[in-house]
């Protein structure tokens, strides 16, 4: 038997997996943001340079990457609010596991309409 005391927030079960997810999504978003500011900076080079790079993003593969990025951001955002509630709300630590299911629920509620709209736009032409 494990000697880990029961009921710690961070070892095993919901507390640990949400922490791993928060960490992985945080780093992924950070690296995206470095690249994102660099490519946006192309507007200072010339309209053609910016449009040329943006045009290479407008394909189904990038649409899927964008969907992955938004999925990561939405999880990190809701789970971040959960972490804040654990820290500042009196009943937060007691309800942390329930709140994780709240995070998952909200994530589904946001992602389903987002994916329908974004993938419809991306896969049905436009230009």
């Amino acid at each position: 038997m494990s000697k880990t005391p029961a009921g710690t927030l961070y070892r095993g079960r919901e507390g640990m997996w949400s922490w791993v997810g928060h960490r992985v999504t945080g780093v992924a978003i950070f690296f995206f943001l470095l690249v994102h500011v660099l490519d946006t900076a192309l507007v200072r080079v010339s309209p053609d340079a910016y449009n040329a790079v943006i045009a290479t993003y407008k394909n189904p593969f990038m649409a899927l990457l964008e969907a992955g990025l938004v999925a990561a951001i939405v999880f990190h955002a809701f789970n971040g609010l959960r972490v804040i509630l654990i820290d500042f709300w009196k009943k937060g630590p007691k309800n942390q596991a329930k709140m994780l299911w709240g995070v998952v629920g909200l994530w589904v509620v946001v992602m389903v309409p987002f994916l329908i709209r974004h993938l419809t736009l991306a896969f049905t032409g436009g230009h």
Binding site: P47, Y50, I54, K58, A77, L81, I84, R117, L121, A122
Partner: peptide, 27 residues
Amino acid sequence: GVVLVVLIFGHLFVNLMVGEGVHAIDF
């Protein structure tokens, strides 16, 4: 974190969901 939820969700909504979404993005 609290402020970023508003800023980033707003950014994504305006740039990806409104009008033509990603197709509209150019110089």
